[in-house]
Every structure is written in structure tokens, then in C-alpha cells.
């Protein structure tokens, strides 16, 4: 865990008065009307909101896929709003691990190769890359499925490969967009307990969801409406385990399966 600003603070995300305005034709759409949000290292936040509330826009900004029209965003001590395309790509690679609703694994590509992908862009080579990818797959309990391609894996397993890909570069932040949206209840609790374990190991998670039973797992819930934060509720302290995670249960992943 190295990187500029890492030593500097316990804040992974600091968003100050972020405004995002799109122009659709001649009409200006105010997606974010001044959102401020600070996320501490080791926290697990669920961001909720109806469609049109601005949660996707916030997610894109947090993921460095988009930049705010005005306001500041510091990610892990770096002022992201001043970076160019290339530097943003680098930040996404080293600081953020994405988990998508539809998994977004590369087809016809083995689990191992999928997990190696961010390491390739990070410039990690050969044996070391393979070792780290194996480590990540091991962490999600899929070390026996490394040579399987996505079509040979269940939805839950595919999402776990995606999580392995997200943690392969050891990022400061895991950004999950509706990670359980495409999963059945068994796979959902499977993935959530995996998040629980990663969080209890100290990883920071920001998760977008609209399912209340999923938000129950987070330590903190932020609710958006019309581009503004209308509720910010803490469910459990930052230090300590997440609310519904049974600490000490050794292999919650395997048990859930």
C-alpha cells in the first residue's frame, strides 16, 4: 500500500461541492447540484437513490470516468480534477477497482487472464503478474477455476472473478456499481460476504445499490435525490467489522457456496 498521499491522511475520498451539468441540446441538465462527501479509509458506503437522483453521475466522477463541472475531488490525496486523460487512466488503474453490475469480464478469456488485465496495464510482467493474479483469485475463493472462461462460470463466480480483478492492483478503493443487481439471492449473499471480508481486512468500498437488504451490509448509507445528498446515516463504526458480517467465520465464501 504505497502511493502519494497514502501516508498523508485517512480520507480516501474527499468530494467538495461537486456540480455536474450536462447540456442536452439547449437544455441544461443538473445531474449533481453540489455534493460533498468524505470517505474514510476502511469504510464501506452504500449510495442509494432512485434513477435520476445523480448516483450514476457521482459514481462516474468517483471512478475518474468523468470530471465534475465545478468543485473538487481528491482521491487518495490526489486532486483528480487537474489530471489529463492519460493520468486519469493511470489513477483508475492503480487507485480504483471496478465491479460492475453485469460483471464485464472479457469473453473467451480465462479467469486468470481477466484478473491479469489491470496488471498488464500497470506494466507488471510475466511471473510476477501471474503470481499476483493467482493471489487475487485465491482471495475470492476461485483458485480452482483459473482456467475457466466466463461462460463456464455461474453468475456469482463471474462476479467473484470481477472482484478479484478489482483487487489485483491493490487499489485504495473498490467501486461497485449495483454489484448484486444481476445475481440470485444465494450469489448475492455470497458476493456480499466477500465484500464483508475484504472490508474487514481494511479495504474501502463504495457501493451503489437500490436494494435495502444490500445496504444493510454497509457501515454507512448515503441517499441522493435530485443531485443532492438528503441522508447520510452511519450503521456501524469505521473501525470494526461491517454490520452483518460474522467476524471470525473463516470461509464465509465457501460456506455460502
Amino acid at each position: 500500500m504505497t502511493g502519494p498521499g497514502r501516508a498523508g491522511g485517512e480520507w480516501v475520498i474527499v468530494v467538495h461541492e461537486a456540480v455536474k451539468t450536462y447540456s442536452v441540446g439547449s437544455v441544461a441538465v443538473h445531474a449533481l447540484r453540489g455534493v460533498s462527501l468524505a470517505v474514510e479509509r476502511g469504510d464501506w458506503i452504500a449510495i442509494m437513490g432512485a434513477s435520476g437522483s445523480g448516483k450514476t453521475t457521482l459514481m462516474n466522477i468517483l471512478g475518474c470516468l468523468d470530471i465534475p463541472t465545478s468543485g473538487h475531488y481528491m482521491l487518495d490525496g490526489i486532486d483528480v480534477s487537474t489530471l489529463d486523460d492519460r493520468e486519469l487512466a493511470e489513477v483508475r488503474n492503480s487507485k480504483i477497482g471496478f465491479v460492475f453490475q453485469s460483471f464485464n469480464l472479457l469473453a473467451r478469456t480465462t479467469a486468470l487472464q481477466n484478473v491479469e488485465l489491470p496488471l498488464i496495464y500497470a506494466g507488471v510482467k510475466g511471473r510476477e503478474r501471474r503470481r499476483r493474479a493467482m493471489l487475487a483469485l485465491d482471495a475470492v475463493g476461485l483458485s480452482d477455476r483459473v482456467e475457466h472462461v466466463p461462460s463456464e462460470l455461474s453468475g456469482g463466480q463471474q462476479q467473484r472473478v470481477a472482484v478479484a480483478r478489482a483487487i489485483a492492483t491493490d487499489p485504495a478503493l473498490i467501486l461497485a456499481d449495483e454489484p448484486t443487481g444481476n445475481l440470485d439471492t444465494v450469489s448475492t449473499s455470497d458476493v456480499l460476504s466477500l465484500f464483508g471480508r475484504l472490508n474487514s481486512e481494511g479495504r474501502t468500498i463504495v457501493m451503489i445499490t437500490h436494494e435495502p437488504e444490500v445496504t444493510d451490509h454497509a457501515k454507512r448509507v448515503v441517499r441522493l435525490r435530485d443531485g443532492m445528498v438528503i441522508e447520510d446515516r452511519r450503521q456501524a463504526p469505521v473501525s470494526g467489522p461491517p454490520p452483518l458480517y460474522a467476524a471470525g467465520a473463516p470461509s464465509s465464501v465457501a460456506a455460502a457456496r
Partner: peptide, 16 residues
């Protein structure tokens, strides 16, 4: 297109 999106999200630059 989606694959390109994923690659970019996880750190591929324009040049890549």
C-alpha cells in the same frame, strides 16, 4: 465497445 469501456475503466490509456 463494452470491452473497450472495461479496458479503459481498469486503466488502459488511449495509446493502449
Amino acid at each position: 465497445t463494452r470491452e473497450i469501456g472495461v479496458r479503459k475503466a481498469i486503466g488502459a490509456t488511449k495509446v493502449d
